[in-house]
Design a protein around this nucleic acid. Structure first.
Lengths: 254, 254
DNA sequence: ACCTGAACACCGTTCAAGT
DNA sequence: ACCTGAACACCGTTCAAGT
């Protein structure tokens, strides 16, 4: 994937004074502060900042390079493709979610509630980037570490391996869908800067009453009165279902 | 949105014989059969076919126009933008899901299970198109009609308005996430035609055992042994949770 | 050793002309 | 009245050169 290995370690490289590169460095220092070397980390964090600020559609290799003060070719010396940039951005985001080993007295239900809420909050804090997670399963180190940890915790609480995995998958599905659909309550066709954005709620309200009576009446409810509450409701449905299953199997019914 | 209205009705337009247009029509008839007028319907169904066949990334206005035997300008005389094409494609897909008024003896649970399974099956049958639904709430007529119908059915079965809406939203979330993540068990970086696709399962299995023991052990379970079963499991968790809530409220606990 | 401009083969969208 | 080629301002990616 990533073309850097040892070279990345050397932060300052030798510049023969008086050489063109030296002059180059001088003049750059004049207009943009000290020259900062391009590293994968810097590319990724800059890409994320650009996405947050201007949206996913505005992230191009050209824009990204310009933001870093170089050309696109320099980017390709560190990374193989734009897809690689996006994969690293996704993992960076997951890394921001604090999925930690919790206090020992937490129940399995608390564990998974905490994980789900924390992950959702992190995703929602980067609304422009969320579609990245709709297009590929994150398999960067941060994503893997988090999944492995949660599975261990669930099993430590006595859930069977199968149930642990199934519950994790179901909950991750719920988190993704919620983060994905949350920002959609506003229409944003094309650029978010487009002036006339109609809220989904108002759209429902303006429909033909004879054709869509239910949608009009339930407009508020359907458009996530409060996204967090909506999320918690779905999560509690899932976890109630899990609890039921655990009870049944402990009573030997299953 | 859609620029056609009455003009669309005229299927054959008068061509003065001998005029350049007439010759044009003749020669086209020679190499591509009879000239078929471009309509919104034809644009949309061709776009969907193109997406199914070659993937979302390969749908460009140029490709689409070529497939229809015209230029891009002609497309823009019928539709305002590529986004409009995509919105219509999404609604076309939803229209394929048969969301029908069921037999009168179906329980609320059967109703919503049928709807969820049918919708998921339809989405999964257009794997290349599913990401469309991750990027905007479908609000075409087919989508609206289906949502309105299901809400009416749930309320007809005695669910409160609020519960009906909340359940619908939770279940739609589940369907979307499941359809979105299902095809991801294969890696497909960039083109699907790229040769070396590693399955997520094999990827998990090849991880470092000391770092990710849980992921290795649960690789099968995590990667959707059977996507339908995984879907049904999550759905049954949700609906068990709903049932619990109904019982509680009918006993006056809630 | 590093970085650049320019090119290749594409995009979505719109224009002034063509018949 | 309809359709076209060509253009505009972009893409991801790679090339041969530059210093």
């Amino acid at each position: 994937m990533n073309k850097d290995s040892a070279e990345e370690v050397a932060v300052e490289w030798p510049v023969p004074p008086g050489s063109p590169a030296w002059w180059q460095a001088r003049s750059d220092a004049g207009r943009a502060g000290r020259r900062v070397p391009v590293t994968v980390e810097r590319i990724v964090s800059t890409a994320l900042a650009l996405i947050d600020r201007e949206g996913l559609q505005r992230l191009s290799m050209r824009n990204l390079a310009a933001e870093l003060g170089t050309g696109t070719t320099t980017l390709y010396r560190h990374l193989a493709s734009k897809d690689e940039v996006l994969a690293l951005v996704a993992d960076e985001i997951i890394g921001e979610a604090q999925i930690e080993r919790p206090m020992s007295d937490a129940s399995w239900r608390q564990v998974i509630e905490d994980v789900a809420r924390s992950l959702r909050e992190t995703l929602v804090s980067h609304p422009n980037a969320v579609p990245l997670f709709a297009v590929s399963v994150p398999v960067g180190p941060n994503a893997l570490r988090a999944r492995n940890l949660v599975l261990g915790l669930l099993r430590g609480h006595g859930l069977s391996p199968k149930l642990s995995a199934d519950v994790l998958v179901a909950v991750l599905h719920h988190v993704l869908a919620s983060a994905l659909l949350d920002p959609m309550v506003e229409f944003r066709v094309g650029e978010p800067s487009n002036p006339p954005t109609l809220s989904l709620r108002d759209f429902y309200r303006g429909l033909a009453p004879d054709t869509y009576p239910e949608l009009i009446e339930l407009a508020d409810q359907l458009t996530g009165n409060s996204p967090e509450k909506e999320f918690d409701f779905g999560l509690s449905l899932l976890l109630d279902g899990v609890e039921l299953r655990i009870e049944r199997s402990s009573r030997g019914i299953d």
